[in-house]
Simulated scan of single mutants.
Amino acid sequence: MEFENIVAGRKGRIQYIIINRESKLNALNKFTLCELHEALTAAYADESIGGIIITGAGTKAFVAGADITEFADFDAAGGTALARDGQATVFDFIANGSKPIIAAVNGFALGGGLELAMACHIRIAADNAKMGLPEVTLGLIPGYGGTQRLTQLVGRGKALEMIMTADMLTAADALQAGLVNQVVFQADLLPRAEELMEKILTRAPLALAAAIRSVNDAGKDGVNGFETEITEFGQCFGTHDFKEGVAAFLEKRKPEFKGR
């Protein structure tokens, strides 16, 4: 599948999706979001793909925000539609996906770029990464889930501080705040992301998907996450992978999960 603004490539069972607008610091425009949706849809549907790593081209930026030039002529209705469509087709589409997704954050992750990273299930940052939500400097607020996911990750007080000051966090500060899972040297970023993903991909695919759904329901309004967990736990007992996992444990061998 050929794209203009992203590069999609395989490494074993790992699908790479690279935002490829390096001259624009990989800023997200509507066309790039459409391509992201297409690439994600294809990766979800391909049974040979176990997980996805999202990163940005070059070393300066993961994604340095949305393409502000597209905002100039929007009114309230247009802005609402932009946020709603983006949430559905990309950001929620990532967060609620059935396959593990790691953000490899290289350089700036600002605005929509940080929102993209936060939608992923795990974030690994290079030591040169800087992260923030600067929307209030434009008279806006985050519109792709930033107010919600940042609060879940770092807590209400820190989220409000970051959003209202528009200050950036260094990679070290982001790690301390719980915004990222790990910080590594720039040269080690993709190898570390691959290492972590390869470890995850030794686990049962259906159980991974069940874990994502259960964790996503934690604290969700109107949803009892404990009930989700109970249901997903029970469903696992009906899978071939559960039988294989138990058999492998009893036979003291590594399991060979099939995602069935």
Rank of each mutant, 00 (worst) to 15 (best):
N5I: 00
E227L: 15
P134F: 03
G234L: 07
A248H: 08
E22F: 06
M1S: 13
T231Y: 13
E194A: 12
I102E: 01
D188M: 15
N29S: 10
A109S: 15
A57L: 10
D67L: 08
A159D: 02
A117F: 03
F3R: 10
L36S: 12
E244C: 04
I14V: 15
L179A: 13
F3H: 15
G234Q: 09
G143R: 04
L175H: 10
D127V: 02
A64C: 14
G51T: 01
R203V: 00
A83G: 07
P142M: 14
D85P: 04
H121P: 01
G78S: 11
K11C: 06
R260E: 14
G86I: 02
G143K: 03
L138N: 05
R192G: 00
A43N: 08
A76K: 14
Y44Q: 08
S23M: 06
V183D: 07
A204Y: 01
F93V: 08
A204H: 00
Q87Y: 06
N224S: 15
I200R: 06
G112C: 09
M118G: 02
V215R: 13
F237G: 11
L160N: 14
K220S: 13
T69W: 10
N224Y: 15
L175W: 07
A204W: 01
A61R: 11
E161R: 10
L116V: 04
P134E: 01
L110C: 07
D46E: 07
G146F: 05
D241R: 00
A72L: 14
D67N: 11
A209Q: 10
Q148H: 12
G9W: 12
E135H: 10
K252C: 07
I122P: 03
G58N: 06
L40W: 09
G78T: 07
N106E: 12
G259C: 12
F108K: 05
K11P: 00
G9M: 09
A64R: 08
I54H: 05
I94W: 10
G58S: 05
K158C: 11
I230T: 04
K243Y: 03
V154L: 09
A39F: 03
G12D: 11
Q152E: 15
A159H: 01
G58W: 06
R84F: 08
Q87N: 08
E229I: 15
K99D: 02
N106K: 11
F242E: 03
T231K: 14
N26Q: 09
S98G: 05
I94R: 08
A174H: 04
L160Y: 04
G113C: 05
A117T: 03
A119I: 06
G12R: 07
I212W: 02
A76W: 02
V215W: 03
I212C: 10
T228P: 03
E244I: 12
G78W: 12
A83N: 10
V63I: 07
R84P: 00
F31S: 15
A117R: 01
K30M: 07
A117P: 06
K252Y: 12
N181W: 15
